[in-house]
């Protein structure tokens, strides 16, 4: 699904990612953990195509294509979805309008006709129920005046409706109380399938109690310093990041 080879990225003259290697197969869940400032968010931004970064080396291949050459909206239409750490408020654009515009862009990209209005409503209403949201949300402006938890839930709602192939969750758990976290995790778990992969960028191990990853990678100073199974997250919970950073510094 996704193959990152020796990826190096700068912001201005400053190297942020210093040689990332990562292979993600269809159906897998990868957790990327690490302390603040390790480059976790940069990695999710690079995959989704945010401006402001310079790729200085390496490749990112998504479903056999060069991901880095695609405009952000093309990546999204090809099935890459970023759930934002800080979802943006868009006054004047309603949720339902954005969802419809997004869904129809994907359909057009794949040569399909626009979604039928009735089918669309049925679809979004079922997803709204799944995420325990009020239908009124659909008619409100995107994220405007939403609480932190509502914004994150809205990201997962969009993901559930757009049915991407590669889901990147950028600190989706940050700022959520336990109830909101459970709802979000349930939403994510309901989307798990053999054709869909997840990259969960997180600072906290707690999320992984509810969404069990297949692999855990630790990012520090712009490199993956350790990879392992779900048990690595528990080890990190116990020991913190310090021992890994020290290992790396010593190396």
């Amino acid at each position: 699904m996704l193959s990152i080879k020796n990826l190096t990225v700068n912001v201005g003259d400053k190297p942020i990612l210093k040689g990332i290697n990562l292979e993600i197969k269809a159906g897998e869940i990868h957790a990327i953990m690490g302390p603040n400032g390790s480059g976790k968010s940069t990695l999710s931004h690079i995959l989704s195509g945010k401006a402001g970064y310079t790729v200085t080396g390496g490749t990112v291949t998504y479903q056999g294509k060069n991901l880095l050459e695609m405009a952000p909206e093309i990546r999204a239409r090809e099935g890459v979805f970023l759930a934002f750490q800080y979802p943006v408020e868009i006054p004047g654009v309603s949720n339902i309008y954005l969802l419809k515009a997004a869904l129809n862009s994907i359909r057009k990209h794949h040569g399909q006709p626009e979604v039928d209005a009735m089918d669309f409503l049925t679809l979004i209403k079922s997803k709204v129920r799944l995420l325990e949201m009020d239908e009124k949300f659909l008619y409100r402006a995107v994220n405007e005046g939403f609480s932190g938890g509502e914004k994150k839930r809205n990201e997962i709602l969009q993901m559930a409706i757009l049915e991407p192939k590669l889901c990147i969750l950028d600190e989706t758990d940050s700022g959520l109380d336990i109830d909101a976290l459970k709802v979000v995790a349930e939403g994510v778990n309901s989307l798990r399938s053999p054709e869909r992969s997840f990259v969960m960028v997180t600072h906290y191990q707690r999320l992984l109690d509810y969404i069990k990853p297949d692999f855990v990678h630790v990012l520090a100073h712009g490199q993956i310093v350790k990879s392992g199974g779900a048990e690595l997250a528990l080890e990190l919970e116990e020991k913190g990041y310090g021992w890994l950073e020290d290992t790396q510094a010593a190396a």
Partner: peptide, 13 residues
């Protein structure tokens, strides 16, 4: 930021 958010939701620039 808003433009990028919409792009990441499949909308062209």
């Amino acid at each position: 930021k808003s433009i990028f958010y919409l792009q990441s939701r499949c909308v062209d620039e």
